[in-house]
């Protein structure tokens, strides 16, 4: 089988298009490349959807945590504490079994036991909590002078938030937020190892990589391939966020713009 045929058969295997059966023996390098790449579709799906939806909840959580009213502050604080203080792996397991027991009460919860919805909810809440804490930190380090200047111009309430507080918060939080985005993409590899079943062997990149490693008993091929894919993905994320950072800081004088680091620190 030529490599072109392999691509045709397996490039979209992870979303159920193409050949049903996975290769079982005599694995070629091409098959490993194509299938692991096919799995990346899921990693990108989880990462992109969780990030783009989680962003809004994160802003809400940050504003809530900075609020003086306990009614807004306490729920935000607890959400952030619970999702940041416990391992994502355990959150996945807990959520999966929670969704399983919900499923038995009403069929409306059926999709939640599938990874595309259930794991996505966990990732969404998780990234919202982590980014929420980042945004909260940024919110508290906005220079006082900026806010006073805004008030001097007569800006109040939501207008002040939309035009001054929010953009400044984003600018300050952006490097850390880039970091969080990279980590979220890495965290997506946990999904199929934590209870959520890979229906019809449609898994993510790590699922296929470990499939090959198990079958060939040779970790030195599939895992470096996976690593290559993730390094490319990380570089894409960094490029995209650097572009956004330039837009966020475009009004600042050239020398005042902090150069977007290409080597973000990797702590979550």
């Amino acid at each position: 089988m030529s490599c072109a045929e392999t691509i045709q058969d397996y490039a979209l295997r992870s979303i159920g298009i193409g050949e049903r059966l996975l290769p079982r023996s005599d694995f070629t390098l091409c098959e490993q490349f194509v299938l692991i790449g096919s799995g990346m579709i899921w990693n990108i799906y989880f990462g992109v959807v969780a990030l783009s939806t989680g962003f809004f909840l994160a802003v809400a959580l940050a504003v809530g945590k900075a609020c003086r009213t306990p009614l807004a502050r306490i729920p935000s604080e607890w959400t952030i504490f619970i999702f940041r203080g416990s391992p994502l792996f355990i959150q996945f397991f807990f959520a999966y079994f929670l969704f399983l027991s919900l499923k038995s009460t009403h069929p409306i919860f059926d999709p939640l036991t599938a990874a595309w919805a259930g794991a996505l909810i966990v990732l969404f809440l998780n990234t919202a909590a982590y980014s929420g804490e980042i945004f909260y930190g940024a919110l508290r380090s906005i220079p006082k002078g900026d806010m006073e200047a805004a008030e001097a111009y007569g800006l109040t309430g939501f207008t002040k938030f939309r035009r001054i507080t929010f953009p400044t918060m984003l600018r300050l939080a952006w490097p850390a937020y880039t970091n969080e985005a990279i980590f979220l993409f890495h965290a997506t590899t946990l999904v199929y190892f934590s209870g959520f079943p890979a229906w019809q062997q449609r898994g993510d990149a790590l699922y296929y990589a470990s499939y090959f490693a198990d079958k060939t008993f040779n970790p030195f091929v599939p895992y470096p391939i996976l690593a290559g894919y993730f390094i490319v993905l990380t570089l894409c994320v960094v490029t995209l966020f650097a572009w956004a950072s330039r837009r966020l800081n475009r009004h600042l004088p050239q020398e005042a713009r902090k150069r977007m680091t290409l080597r973000p620190s990797f702590m979550r």
Partner: peptide, 22 residues
């Protein structure tokens, strides 16, 4: 230092356990 940054840590775990053993 650099290689751990770009790659998910769980991939390292799965890799090293077999690789070290072998």
């Amino acid at each position: 230092i650099a290689i751990v940054r770009g790659v998910p840590d769980i991939a390292f775990f799965l890799f090293f356990v077999i690789a070290l053993d072998q």
